[in-house]
Nucleic acid binder design. Structure first.
Lengths: 113, 113
DNA sequence: AGTCGTTGCTACGATTGTCGTAGTATAAAA
DNA sequence: TTTTATACTACGACAATCGTAGCAACGACT
């Protein structure tokens, strides 16, 4: 109850991820925790959704990946860094969101009888 | 340019249709024209999307259909009428939209540098 | 009389983001 | 020592949308 069906957000996961990469590179687990906390626990992205978003973002040239050691034993973590194209894409999606919201809200009236 | 990618709206077409059926029954062609005009030409629903939405809505019990003659020669038109469950579903989607919007907007900041 | 644009659909397969389930493996905390 | 947290990958299923096509009646215009 009161939770978000992720199908609504479809197509905006990529944008949300880019937002969180804006100032510095990050990686899957961290991003997922940030989405949860920034949304005040209202949206928890599925792991598979998240990692497939990374793949898509990289394929589209919106992020670049690199990996780094986390422990001495050689455990690695994959980081993603936003690219200039990624920033551009983010800005376009923001504009699109504004437009979309306006359109949707012509049809959404709370408290209809 | 400035047009809406319908993937954003995914999952809200049904809600938009229910809104337009609120006061009186209607049919495909009319609904599609209304969506276009209410959105100020910013959103044009695809025919296939629209008719498959009707099918889904009916299967879920949110609308009922009936058909009527349009011409003497027997050309028929399929009308849809919203049900009480449909109204209930619409109200839930409105609440969900409000929540979703709040969440998405934590990640959407126009004019980021 | 013939063509064009509008009306009002249906059929069918492709696409794509998300989801479900599962598995793997290290590290820290209890 | 058994959880819990961390940090992923693999694989197939699902469902809304899209693309393309086709069909048929009607009215307006030429």
């Amino acid at each position: 109850m009161g939770s978000i069906s992720s199908d609504i957000i479809r197509g905006y996961n990529d944008t949300m991820i880019l937002y969180l990469l804006w100032d510095s590179p990050s990686y899957g687990y961290e991003i997922s925790k940030q989405i949860k906390s920034l949304s005040e626990e209202k949206y928890v992205i599925k792991e598979t959704t998240l990692y497939s978003a990374f793949t898509r973002l990289e394929k589209n040239g919106f992020v670049e990946s690199f990996s780094e050691n986390v422990t001495i034993s050689g455990k690695r973590r994959t980081y993603y860094r936003i690219t200039e194209q990624g920033r551009q894409y983010y800005r376009e999606k923001c504009a699109e969101w504004t437009l979309t919201k306006e359109v949707v809200e012509k049809f959404i009236k709370e408290g209809m009888q």
